[in-house]
Every structure is written in structure tokens, then in C-alpha cells.
Design a protein around this nucleic acid. Structure first.
Lengths: 343, 343
DNA sequence: GCTCCCGCTTGGAACGATCAAGACCTCGGG
DNA sequence: CCCGAGGTCTTGATCGTTCCAAGCGGGAGC
């Protein structure tokens, strides 16, 4: 039954086909695939040859049915906000796909309809389509975590359980405060003393976290933060306006921003006023987006270790799905700083 | 058996459970789910009530095993080049997830290991894990299409079969030439007559296609293209150097670029020389990336209708998977132009 | 020589759905 | 009165895999 070029077998070979060819029983073939140790060496070789010859791969559906697991990890892709955060999520997805692949899993993407974010989870869970979830949008008031826990659905969240410090589920997050602290220290080291902050509105936990890093670094050197901070929407224009006001009222020599989008707004203001980013006024953004890399003169930006985050998430998933489940503590990763012309 | 708060049923209800509760047979429940027309109205209601009460969803694995289909669509995420093209793919993935969801499918992401791109396809195909594939990287010499066709694996490609005009598989693509033609005409309408091209090296079909649109628009008005084109790598620096040379040698008043990355290079050169983008020299990019939206003074850019493309891809998939398969012709979509300050 | 145990293999029975075919009832026509 | 048709629902078999418990042969121990 060697492969004939141009002729493709109509039906995929099954365990029974392999067993017959190798002259053993179905179970022996199954063991050869799942528990090779149980077989005598020569039998194993014979079975493996047969598998090779037929081009056999276990039927996923049958295996899933029997073992009650799909080796799929579900992740909800929240419908498109065209923002910086989105690009970061995409980078994370890339890393996640790569890492899960190495662990023998695949990533299944879905999006619940907008008005009921839980719908997608519910469907997949009840139909046992996925083994676990990766949850990414852990903003305030998002009921996913609590809901999933109540259903005893295994999941790992990328993002801290901000609104529930006692949450018991595993999570991985990037220490935003450490990132902005790094950025602020970098500016302090360059001799800046009047460093302004432009961040998000107060209801964003992530925004307040990032702001805390900036303020911590300043207070460490006994520098005041009063009047040096502005909290706005995450748009270029907001960043532009906020930085214009701050320049007039607080006269900072540097800006740290909660996002590259806001930092771009600062760059616009500087250009409006004939100021040179980097030379006259320093600017640091957050997320190391493509924008930061290609804009003139290069935007220094905090880079989240998303590849590493994906690895940790998958590790946590493997722990959750092990028998018995091993559930570790939350993991906080430290970002790095990509230094470019703007500082 | 109403749902008791805090208490979650350990095992998911099965068809048999519903059947018992409704006082009918398994098959009748199955029909209620898949062929409601076959049931008498009152029976249907009774069964649906039972389904509702138990919170029943068909077990995906069992259904997949029996019907030999998974309702999953596989897509290979090519390992991260951090380029513009990547962001476009991500946008496409978002749209694809949304559209497949509406069609009752889910998207499964994978990435074969780098040295053997076919490996991932092969595994999924032989284990019948997905019903079909969406292929995105149709660059020259990529063996995926031919390989998949040989295996009789259903797939739709996003991207034309450049190297094989007789290919019979369904595909969807964006008319790059129409996009650059649109961009060039836009500049012509603004009064520009010396319009330069910065594109990719000649071995890129996509690059040559986009270039053709530029040259077509110019020739239509009897304007010469000689000496007005440059073909380089897709990096900011290449765009910067190429535009500097062109400005010196060909004295264009406008640039059309094969990517936003290259266009950013042009903007750098203009800034280097104290020229104002939009006012002194016009620039148009391609892909309408985030960069184009936030850079100063806004980069006019060709925007691919990726949402529409995803819809067409899913349509084609549904046709392929129908009984009997309906396979339509290739579909070419026309991009639009997002006009901003740079022109 | 018998039992016991170990290592490997075996057939049978799930997993939960759909397919194919048959049973039952009603109704209309001959 | 009988028959066939059609609508409605039920029964048995099946998809391909893994789990379970038993089978089988050989070597060690008594």
C-alpha cells in the first residue's frame, strides 16, 4: 500500500488499517502512539513502519470524543477597536499560536456577538469544543472571569484580575508600572527633572497602574508630580491637546505616555511649535508599536514581553489541564525599553 | 432539573438525557436540532423546552466523528515578520473570525515549523481536524496551493495564484494595480505631473502588480515613467534613500509607494530637506496602516477592503463545502483611497 | 510440577452523535 | 374492506478512538 503518485486514497487510514498491516491489534497501535513504552522494541518498530507507510494520523474527532478533550484553546477576539491595544493583542496572538503549537495545542478564535460577550464562551464550553480559554480583556466589570470560574472552565487570563485581588485563577500580566518607571528613570538619567505624564482616564486600571510607575520614579528623587499629569482619551488628538496645555502650564522637558498613540500626539504638538523631539523635548511611549519604530526620529517606547507572556500562559494552561491540576500563582513580567531618537 | 445557583452539573447533558426528559427517542431530538421540519409542531416545542431546561448543546466531538466534518477552518499564521503586510493580515484575521462565526464556523490558527510550511497542513488534514483551509501567503514558489489541490483538500486562497493562471481553486484578492492607479489619478487630479514610484524588488508579483497601476495611470495621460521608478527592499531606510535619489535625479512633485513603510521613508527624506509633505511634495502609501493614520500630517494611503475580502472568502468556503461543491471564479476587489494631509 | 506474577496483547464496550431503515398511524382511493 | 402513500417517530448500526478487564505465555519461586 505504498503511496501512488497522483492517486490519493479516498478514505483516511484508521487504527484498524494500521493494525492489520502490522499484524497486531488496534490497542497495540494505540499504545504505540500514546504509550510507546508499553511495547516491545521490535513490535514498536513494526507498528511505526506501518503508520509511516499508510500515512496514518489519529482521527481527532474520535480521539476527542473518547478522551473528552480537544487539544484546542479558545480565545475571544474582541471586535475591532482600531487602537494600539489591538496591535499588541495581535502580537500576543502570534506568539500564542507559536507556543501552543509546540505544546501540542491549537488556538481557536471566536468572537461572541457584541452585546453578549459570554455567548461565545458558553457555546464552546457546552459543546466541549475547547479544553480551556485564554482571556485577554480583563477590564473592570468584565464578567468573564467570574462566569468561567463558576462553570469550572479552565482558563488563564492575560491581564490581572484588577477588580478582584483574591481571584484564584492563574494569570499572566506585564508590569505596566515597572515599564513607565523604567521609562521615567531613563529620562531622569538623561538629566530631565520636569517629566510630565499623559495617560488614560481614571477608570482604567491599566492606565492608573502605568501612571503609578511614573509617579514612583519621580517621588524616589523627591520631584513633584503636581500639575504634571493629564488624563485623556486614547487618541492622537487628545495627546496633542494635553501636551500643548502641559507645555504651557507646567513647562516639562519630557513626556511619558500611557500609549504610543498619545505619544504621537505629543510629537505633533512639538512639530507644531518647531520643537525637536529628542533634542528639545524628550518623549516616551508605550507598546513599541510599529508607529514607534518608523516615525521620525524614532519613538522611545516601553516594550511588553509578549512572546514571554505567551509562553507563561501556555505553561499555566498545561498546569491547569494536567492530572491533577497544578495551579500556580499569578505571574508579573517586566517590560523593557526600546530607546530611539525621541529621548 | 432546573439550574441550581452555585451548583454546576458535573457532566454535560447528552442527546439521550434530552430524549428522556422530553419523552421521545434520541433521533427525534437530533432531528429537532438539525431538521426541525420533520417534527410535528407540538413535539418540536416539547423537545425544545427540554433542550432549554437542560442547557443542552450537541457534543462537538461526537458530531464531528459522525459527520466527518469539524466546522473548523484552518489558517496558517506565518511566523512574525514585523512588517506592514503583517498588520494587514491581522486585520484580515479579525474580519475572518467575525465572518466565519456568522457562518457557523470557527477559525483554527496554526503555524507549521519554519523549515517545512506544509507540515502543519499535513497534520491537520490527515487527522481531519479542519474542514478547509484559508491560505494567505501565495507568494511565488509557495507550494501550498498545488500540494493542497493534490490532496483534494478544500481551500480558498486570499491572494491570486500568481504563478499559475490556470489554477482552479477559488481565490479572493485585492486589485493592487487598481489601488495604485486610484492613488496616481488622485495625484494627477491635484495637478501633479511628475509622479515617482517606489516599490519592491522585481521578484514580487504583488509589487509588480501595484507598479502597473501607477504606470497605467501615467501612460493614460501620455506622461513618461522613465527614470521615475525605484525598486527596493520594504524598509523605511530603503524608502528614504530611494526618494532622496529620485528627488535629485527626476525631480518628482509626488510619490506613490508600494507600502506605508516605504512612504514613511519618503516622509523622512522630505523632513531631512525641510520640505513639507502635502504642501511641497505629495506622498501616497499603501495599506492604510496605523502608521498612516497617526503620522504627521496624515499619510494618504490605499486601503484594502479586508472586511469584504473575508466575507468573500467565507462565501467561497461555504460553496466549496456544500453538496455538491459550488466553485466560483476568482474574485478581485477594488481598494479605496484614504486621503490625508500628505497629498 | 504447580502457582504466581510480570509483560505484552486481545476482544469488547464505551464516548455521543447521525444515518439508514423499519414501525406505527392516519387517510384517501379503489 | 383492503391497499398504498405519506407523515411521524423509533430502533439498531456506525463513525474511530481509548478504556477496561481478561487472556496468554514464560520465568521465578516453592
Amino acid at each position: 500500500m505504498s503511496r501512488i503518485p497522483g492517486r490519493v486514497p479516498t478514505a483516511a487510514p484508521t487504527l484498524a488499517d494500521v493494525a492489520e498491516l502490522a499484524g497486531v491489534s488496534r490497542q497495540t497501535v494505540s499504545n504505540a502512539v500514546n504509550n510507546p513504552d508499553l511495547l516491545r522494541a521490535d513490535t514498536l518498530v513494526r507498528v511505526q513502519d506501518a503508520i509511516e507507510e499508510l500515512g496514518y494520523s489519529p482521527n481527532r474527532a474520535a480521539r476527542n470524543l473518547r478522551t473528552r478533550s480537544s487539544h484546542l484553546v479558545g480565545m475571544r477576539l474582541s471586535p475591532g477597536q482600531e487602537f494600539t491595544a489591538n496591535a499588541a493583542i495581535d502580537r500576543f496572538v502570534h506568539s500564542l499560536v507559536e507556543t501552543t503549537g509546540e505544546a501540542g495545542y491549537h488556538v481557536l478564535l471566536f468572537n461572541g456577538d457584541g452585546n453578549d460577550p459570554l455567548r461565545g464562551y458558553d457555546d464552546l464550553l457546552r459543546s466541549t469544543a475547547v479544553d480551556a480559554f485564554v482571556v485577554t480583556d480583563t477590564y473592570l466589570g468584565n464578567p468573564q472571569a467570574a462566569w468561567l470560574r463558576e462553570r469550572r472552565a479552565p482558563f488563564v487570563s492575560f491581564g490581572r484580575p484588577w477588580d478582584d485581588p483574591d481571584a484564584t485563577h492563574p494569570w499572566v500580566d506585564v508590569d505596566g508600572a515597572a515599564g513607565t518607571e523604567l521609562a521615567t528613570r531613563h529620562l531622569l538619567d538623561k538629566g530631565h527633572e520636569r517629566i510630565a505624564w499623559i495617560g488614560w482616564r481614571k477608570d482604567s486600571f491599566i492606565g492608573e497602574d502605568r501612571r503609578a510607575g511614573w509617579s514612583r520614579a519621580l517621588k524616589e528623587r523627591d520631584l513633584s508630580t503636581t500639575g504634571m499629569a493629564s488624563r485623556v482619551e486614547d487618541t492622537v488628538n487628545s495627546g496633542r491637546e494635553a501636551s500643548a496645555v502641559l507645555l504651557d502650564e507646567a513647562r516639562p522637558s519630557a513626556f511619558v505616555c500611557a500609549s504610543d498613540t498619545l505619544a504621537m500626539g505629543v510629537l505633533h504638538t512639538l512639530a507644531d511649535r518647531g520643537l525637536r523631539a529628542g533634542a528639545d523635548i524628550a518623549v516616551v511611549g508605550f507598546d513599541d508599536s510599529q508607529v514607534a519604530q518608523v516615525v521620525r526620529p524614532g519613538l522611545t517606547s516601553v516594550r511588553q514581553p509578549l512572546e514571554d507572556a505567551a509562553i507563561r500562559v501556555v505553561n499555566a494552561l498545561e498546569g491547569l489541564l494536567a492530572h491533577p491540576p497544578r495551579v500556580g500563582p499569578g505571574i508579573l513580567l517586566t517590560p523593557t525599553l526600546a530607546v530611539r531618537g525621541s529621548s
